[in-house]
Design a protein around this nucleic acid. Structure first.
Lengths: 250, 250
DNA sequence: ACATTCCAATTGTCAGACATTTAAAACATT
DNA sequence: AATGTTTTAAATGTCTGACAATTGGAATGT
């Protein structure tokens, strides 16, 4: 099954790909045990170190787990949503920071994604998700909250909204859009007035969800998106001004 | 910088995590060169093999690339959307197949995601994306097309729609929702009548997008979603019936 | 100035050893 | 017979040292 390697670059990469393909194709099933490292080495005609590098590649992607000792070995992992989240969020965050994506683009993606959840959330929102949203709103009202904490709470609020849609697949796809925005949001300093306005929108959304009013929730979300864009504009203007004065001194 | 390891499991995993953290934190910049494997080994107090396993973990996640030869080494990768897509799609596909997600849930996520793109696509859809959509519609009309090819074209159509929203971040988040559905869609056999109906919805969507009519596009998409759900129901009923008769024979 | 050769650095691969972990088998005790 | 202890074997984790392959730059020759 795993004998044909596509000649392409390093052996460890080829072997990792061959095994990955077998997993995706369903040839290797969840919790199935791979042959031992030595045996894989024999089958592929490579040394144990090369096999190990291949297995580490797969482990990095959560495709396998390894166990030591007798009856240990490498086992095909059942990838859970919980396992996949961190990886997904890390990648999204790096995509944003490394490709100088504009704040507007990221923001637009975030609110478009959330908008998709609103009808579902309004329809099925459970008490616990609603409670989570209310709790974050309460936290956001606390004075003396750092910008970072405020943003973190903001993320948590929106994540609760997405979870409220009651669709694990949708949540998985969208949470990274929200989480990966946090570094960008953290750059903005929120005045007391900004926070009050944002909290008001959050309350509106929560209220609308509670009364299963999707239309109103969408409107509130749109208003929040709009307001966030305004804040981003202000921030950019401020930064530009700073840059100008720095230039003047220079 | 990379000296403090969180004691947790294998050394190669700890080292990989330490470097990953440095990348995410921005301590290591794009295209920056890591120390050589031997030097990293000295710094972390481990052997070269262990360092290599750590680097392979990072390479599997596209975080670094390696180059041989003088002035070679491991370099921090600028993760592009193109690089991130396949990884993301693979993970999504495995999540669906390994967690017995229902067709309904996956479908719901898919159409919710697409719905989020409609307003943006209607607003800014470019001729090339529209042409891509039309081309797929044309392909879908060909007789003698296998179910797999029809589904592939369906995926391509919807992907063009998402791309038409003109937001790379949004596209990245949502394409996997669409692509990972393909294995599930492939299980359904489409009759000639089914295809005609689906193609009609596709045409409706394309027309609406072309005339910047978001409301109509959303309606057409909703109708398509509804129809797909019906087909899935039929499929499930048919399979159930087969199972019953198999039981009777048994 | 340009082409060629050589060299040194670096990753890729291999082989073999030992350390560590773990479950199961073998053994001893009650 | 049941239970607790020791031994053992298998497997991964790590280390060491070696060599192959690649590659950019330095040295050399024309």
């Amino acid at each position: 099954m795993k004998y044909t390697l596509k000649p392409n670059g390093e052996l460890s990469a080829q072997i990792a790909l061959a095994i990955q393909d077998a997993i995706v194709a369903g040839t290797l099933l969840v919790d199935e045990r791979l042959p031992s490292e030595s045996e894989l080495g024999e089958r592929f005609g490579v040394s144990r170190s090369t096999v190990r590098e291949a297995l580490k590649r797969l482990a990095a992607k959560n495709l396998i787990r390894t166990q030591r000792g007798a009856s240990g070995g490498a086992f095909i992992n059942r990838i859970s949503f919980e396992d996949a989240y961190p990886q997904q969020i890390t990648t999204s965050t790096l995509l944003l920071s490394m490709n100088d994506v504009s704040f507007e683009t990221a923001c637009e993606a975030r609110y478009a994604a959330e908008r998709a959840c609103i009808p579902l959330a309004a329809q099925r929102c459970q008490p616990d998700h609603l409670a989570a949203m209310r709790a974050e709103i309460h936290r956001q009202k606390q004075s003396g909250l750092s910008d970072e904490s405020f943003c973190a709470s903001d993320v948590a609020f929106h994540r609760a909204l997405v979870d409220g849609a009651g669709n694990a697949v949708l949540a998985y796809q969208l949470v990274s859009a929200i989480e990966s925005m946090q570094p960008l949001m953290n750059m903005i300093t929120f005045s007391e007035r900004d926070r009050t306005t944002i909290i008001q929108f959050h309350s509106d959304i929560a209220d609308a969800i509670e009364t299963h009013d999707a239309t109103r929730a969408e409107a509130a979300l749109a208003a929040l998106a709009n307001y966030t864009a305004t804040l981003a504009d202000q921030f950019r203007a401020k930064r530009e001004k700073l840059r100008q004065s720095a230039k003047a001194v220079d």
